[in-house]
Lab assay of single mutants.
Amino acid sequence: QVLVIRIKIPNSGAVDWTVHSGPQLLFRDVLDVIGQVLPEATTTAFEYEDEDGDRITVRSDEEMKAMLSYYYSTVMEQQVNGQLIEPLQIFPRAC
């Protein structure tokens, strides 16, 4: 299952990153890619938005798994409803 992660860049749009092994993705892998997209920032975590629009911070593989399972459940709903699949949007955080 292909996963598209949209890395939101403060004040300048976003970069889409296509991942072919989504469920095996590790927290460190995401930080590495964010580091390539935002080389001047030191990113130690990132956030995503849940169904209520609240930002949830991801700082570990466990939290990463929770984010992915949340995302895959929303994708299934979108597929069932015949909607366009939205990329998983993440917001890098420099701490």
Score class of each variant (00 low, 15 high):
residue 60 S to F: 00
residue 50 D to Y: 11
residue 49 E to Y: 15
residue 24 Q to P: 06
residue 76 M to C: 14
residue 85 I to C: 13
residue 84 L to E: 15
residue 72 Y to E: 10
residue 4 V to D: 05
residue 90 I to D: 02
residue 76 M to H: 13
residue 82 G to D: 08
residue 91 F to L: 02
residue 59 R to I: 02
residue 69 S to V: 08
residue 95 C to E: 14
residue 64 M to P: 01
residue 55 R to W: 04
residue 78 Q to I: 04
residue 5 I to E: 01
residue 95 C to Q: 14
residue 42 T to N: 14
residue 23 P to L: 07
residue 78 Q to K: 15
residue 40 E to V: 04
residue 88 L to A: 02
residue 62 E to Y: 08
residue 74 T to H: 11
residue 28 R to S: 15
residue 78 Q to F: 07
residue 75 V to Q: 10
residue 51 E to C: 13
residue 27 F to H: 05
residue 39 P to V: 02
residue 60 S to M: 00
residue 74 T to M: 11
residue 76 M to K: 14
residue 84 L to V: 14
residue 16 D to G: 01
residue 29 D to A: 04
residue 75 V to T: 14
residue 68 L to I: 10
residue 43 T to Y: 11
residue 43 T to N: 06
residue 71 Y to C: 02
residue 63 E to M: 02
residue 64 M to A: 05
residue 27 F to I: 05
residue 91 F to T: 04
residue 29 D to Y: 00
residue 88 L to S: 01
residue 79 Q to E: 13
residue 6 R to I: 02
residue 90 I to Q: 06
residue 78 Q to W: 08
residue 86 E to G: 09
residue 49 E to W: 03
residue 17 W to P: 02
residue 86 E to A: 09
residue 63 E to D: 13
residue 50 D to P: 04
residue 26 L to A: 13
residue 22 G to N: 04
residue 40 E to R: 06
residue 75 V to F: 08
residue 29 D to P: 02
residue 41 A to Y: 06
residue 74 T to V: 08
residue 79 Q to T: 12
residue 37 V to I: 13
residue 90 I to M: 03
residue 92 P to K: 01
residue 5 I to N: 00
residue 87 P to V: 04
residue 17 W to G: 01
residue 67 M to E: 00
residue 15 V to N: 01
residue 53 G to W: 00
residue 26 L to S: 13
residue 67 M to T: 01
residue 66 A to S: 12
residue 94 A to H: 10
residue 55 R to P: 03
residue 5 I to P: 00
residue 3 L to D: 00
residue 79 Q to D: 11
residue 42 T to H: 13
residue 59 R to C: 05
residue 53 G to Q: 04
residue 70 Y to W: 10
residue 3 L to A: 01
residue 47 E to P: 01
residue 19 V to H: 08
residue 50 D to K: 08
residue 46 F to M: 06
residue 65 K to N: 09
residue 18 T to L: 04
residue 18 T to S: 07
residue 53 G to K: 05
residue 46 F to H: 00
residue 29 D to H: 08
residue 91 F to D: 01
residue 46 F to T: 05
residue 12 S to W: 07
residue 34 I to E: 05
residue 7 I to A: 01
residue 48 Y to M: 04
residue 72 Y to H: 12
residue 73 S to M: 08
residue 32 D to Y: 13
residue 52 D to P: 01
residue 88 L to E: 04
residue 73 S to T: 12
residue 32 D to H: 09
residue 64 M to F: 10
residue 29 D to V: 03
residue 36 Q to P: 00
residue 48 Y to T: 00
residue 57 T to D: 04
residue 19 V to F: 15
residue 50 D to V: 12
residue 75 V to H: 11
residue 35 G to K: 08
residue 56 I to A: 04
residue 39 P to N: 07
residue 66 A to K: 10
residue 1 Q to A: 06
residue 2 V to S: 09
residue 5 I to W: 02
residue 84 L to M: 14
residue 45 A to R: 05
residue 77 E to A: 09
residue 92 P to T: 00
residue 92 P to G: 00
residue 37 V to L: 13
residue 65 K to G: 09
residue 81 N to W: 04
residue 15 V to L: 08
residue 70 Y to D: 08
residue 60 S to A: 04
residue 27 F to V: 03
residue 83 Q to K: 10
residue 8 K to P: 04
residue 90 I to K: 02
residue 79 Q to L: 07
residue 28 R to V: 07
residue 7 I to D: 00
residue 69 S to M: 08
residue 65 K to A: 07
residue 49 E to S: 06
residue 71 Y to N: 00
residue 91 F to M: 04
residue 31 L to A: 11
residue 7 I to H: 01
residue 37 V to Y: 15
residue 26 L to C: 12
residue 40 E to C: 09
residue 32 D to A: 08
residue 80 V to S: 14
residue 95 C to N: 15
residue 87 P to H: 02
residue 82 G to R: 11
residue 56 I to P: 02
residue 83 Q to S: 14
residue 77 E to F: 08
residue 23 P to H: 15
residue 20 H to G: 14
residue 20 H to V: 06
residue 90 I to T: 04
residue 8 K to N: 11
residue 35 G to R: 09
residue 36 Q to L: 05
residue 64 M to T: 14
residue 63 E to F: 01
residue 46 F to P: 05
residue 85 I to N: 07
residue 23 P to S: 11
residue 36 Q to D: 06
residue 22 G to R: 08
residue 53 G to C: 05
residue 60 S to L: 00
residue 43 T to F: 08
residue 11 N to L: 04
residue 4 V to G: 03
residue 86 E to T: 09
residue 4 V to C: 15
residue 49 E to R: 04
residue 5 I to M: 09
residue 7 I to T: 02
residue 65 K to E: 08
residue 51 E to Y: 10
residue 60 S to V: 00
residue 43 T to R: 04
residue 31 L to V: 08
residue 37 V to Q: 06
residue 35 G to T: 13
residue 47 E to R: 04
residue 35 G to L: 08
residue 70 Y to M: 15
residue 95 C to L: 14
residue 24 Q to F: 02
residue 68 L to W: 06
residue 19 V to R: 04
residue 24 Q to A: 05
residue 92 P to W: 02
residue 34 I to R: 00
residue 84 L to N: 13
residue 15 V to Y: 15
residue 25 L to P: 11
residue 82 G to L: 05
residue 52 D to M: 13
residue 35 G to F: 06
residue 42 T to Y: 07
residue 24 Q to T: 10
residue 11 N to H: 05
residue 65 K to H: 09
residue 66 A to E: 15
residue 32 D to Q: 07
residue 61 D to S: 03
residue 38 L to M: 15
residue 80 V to T: 13
residue 55 R to H: 07
residue 81 N to A: 05
residue 12 S to K: 14
residue 19 V to L: 12
residue 95 C to I: 09
residue 33 V to R: 15
residue 89 Q to A: 08
residue 19 V to G: 01
residue 46 F to S: 01
residue 34 I to S: 03
residue 60 S to K: 05
residue 86 E to Q: 12
residue 30 V to N: 00
residue 88 L to N: 02
residue 61 D to Q: 07
residue 10 P to M: 03
residue 78 Q to S: 12
residue 72 Y to D: 08
residue 78 Q to D: 11
residue 5 I to Q: 03
residue 38 L to F: 05
residue 72 Y to V: 07
residue 7 I to E: 05
residue 5 I to G: 00
residue 68 L to R: 01
residue 44 T to D: 14
residue 56 I to S: 02
residue 21 S to A: 10
residue 36 Q to Y: 03
residue 32 D to W: 05
residue 13 G to S: 04
residue 21 S to E: 09
residue 78 Q to H: 13
residue 55 R to Q: 02
residue 93 R to T: 10
